[in-house]
Design a protein around this nucleic acid. Structure first.
Lengths: 204, 204, 204, 204
DNA sequence: GATGAATGAGGGTTCATTCAT
DNA sequence: TATGAATGAACCCTCATTCAT
């Protein structure tokens, strides 16, 4: 009907959500003020509150977006190609996501650290995707393609290996002698993690 | 007489620091109120402020304690025994620390995520310890004991592998079907990570 | 529309500044609470803080206003008319100001008594005005229109003579048998001070 | 009985009173904290409160001391010697007092500015002394030794002339190009004020 | 006498949110 | 839609004072 108006609204809402994710990622739900979100979004606090129903709701919206992406990262990878292709593909996706959207990863980690109370409902679909992947891993192990392994722990380990470069970006840059504006080398990181995992799963 | 007073004071200060670490770990510096710290320590807010000089100072004290432990974890491990012993020893220490003191690890991660501004000075000695370890790794690689590897990335990877079980304890328990009060199996986790890393560093 | 808003804002800001000056005049910067300012302005403390940026800033704003008036009192008086006209004019102005705006004078005295730290920058223009007046006095003395006199001390003396009726209003009323709501007789005071000074400067 | 003990107590109490006067002089009753008094006296806050019955009582004690001195300054000067001797004697005493005990003068002014509520009872004897002096002045005027003058206003004027050099010491030093540690020239000031007053009272 | 501990009240200020226009 | 005004709750922290030893 009024595509312009709706568009405009969506644009502002998008800007707000983006700003919110950045703030929540750094300071968590409690530590973030609506004022700081408004500042980052370039609007007044009053206007922010016109577009959102509350700080908590905005936070949940951000979480929803992230959990969606999280699940997507498992999808579209065929396990039929065998463990090597599957894992390197998945690792590459996750590293790219961590380096391109570090705030989303950090927000998720922050939520988890503060108890994960808001994840409870949202976690279900992610858990399902994770369990499917775990089943594949177990099968590979049974077929002798990889060594015996606890599949859940393996997935957690891959998770942490890939996500840390969002969380620790600053320290990683510092240790590697990069400036704050120089990006981490995505290829090198992906390569290193992939090698560690694939090698680490070979049969002894 | 006097020792009793000092003891008493140290006891309560310890209780406060402990409570503070737990709160800061979950909600960060900004998201933590002195009221919540007082509540957790079982004292009144006024009494809390009698024992501390300020929220920020308490936070820094917590950080200092953690950074000290962090550096210690590198120490006392002889690199002469070769990579396998060194790495499995280090991994075991870090996993145990993460499972026994998850709040300290989480607080550190929280600080890093919010910019790491308070780490700047405190990071130096940790960096030195890390660089020493990196030198050993490089040497092992040169001597053909392990495959070629970026030593800094390897250390970061070990870091994340071991620390995630503090950060993600809740989710890990959930995925593994454990109740909130059932501890994660330290041995299984250590074994899995150690195998992954040692295997992953073998020469192809 | 807009002018109304701005007007409204200015009105309430004026009310606040007025209340602040009254409180600061009586109790100084430290001794005044924002609560008491709010009470006197007839608004809530929260609302007060909506209109000001802080207690200190409000205090500085009050000081600025006063220092401006202070300098103005020197201006517009021509020294060409000779010492008698100049001095009686200046004395009359200052007495009137002290009796009409005693709070402003008291606030200034309070600031001076507590060290005058906030005056440092603001004092410059007032000092210049004072030095100009001192130059005139010296010239009159040189030309034999008045007796030899230390011009700076003379100005300080006039200053104290005229300002004391703001500071000591209560005691003056008490000694002269006036009630609290009966004003001091501006004319008598002006006359007495003027006579003392003009007479006191005659050549012996 | 235990002169040592009593002595010791008096010594500490003296130190406290001195410190209190200095703080009250700068920041008033409300603006002064018992902590700052304790700090200046070089004792702990707890110990301070052991020696005093309360902040208000300490303030009143300081006021009492000052009012006593205030009255004394009138005494011991014989009005028989005529106006010139009497006034120059009184002015000299008051200037010396203002320069030597500026804190006491400032504390008195501060009390007056904040309403003088604590003076009410204490003012009586001072008022009497003042009225006696006023009577002398009136008599001198009647006898033609000085010009007709409002005696109360004259006394207030002398009061302000002499006391301002306690209140405005900092500004006076600044205007006269003195450093903070250089004392004002008592003789010059006394001379200037005396001349102004004696001259100013001559019959036209 | 002297000290550390403790406290309820209040200090200035910011919070998320709602109201009025 | 969008803005300034407004608010009650909460923020961190200090206050004068009392308690216990």
């Amino acid at each position: 009907m009024r595509p312009d108006l709706a568009n405009r609204r969506n644009k502002i809402r998008g800007k707000i959500l983006e700003a919110a994710i950045l703030e929540f990622a750094d300071y968590g739900l409690r530590g973030t003020s609506t004022q700081s979100i408004a500042d980052r979004a370039g609007i007044s606090k009053t206007r922010l509150h016109y577009y959102i129903s509350g700080k908590d709701e905005l936070y949940l919206e951000a979480l929803d977006k992230i959990m969606g992406t999280w699940t997507e990262l498992f999808e579209g990878i065929s396990p039929d190609k065998g463990p090597e292709d599957f894992l390197s593909d998945y690792i590459a996706r996750k590293v790219r996501y961590s380096l391109e959207q570090p705030a989303e990863v950090k927000l998720f980690v922050s939520e988890v650290m503060s108890g994960g109370k808001h994840l409870q409902d949202r976690w279900a679909s992610s858990k399902a995707a994770m369990l499917r992947a775990a089943a594949h891993i177990e099968e590979w192990s049974d077929r002798g393609l990889i060594r015996p392994v606890n599949p859940i722990l393996l997935l957690f380990n891959i998770w942490s290996l890939t996500e840390q470069y969002a969380v620790m970006a600053g320290e990683a840059r510092y240790m590697m002698g990069l400036n704050n504006d120089e990006p981490l080398d995505s290829e090198v990181i992906t390569q290193e993690i992939t090698t560690l995992v694939i090698n680490g799963l070979r049969i002894a």
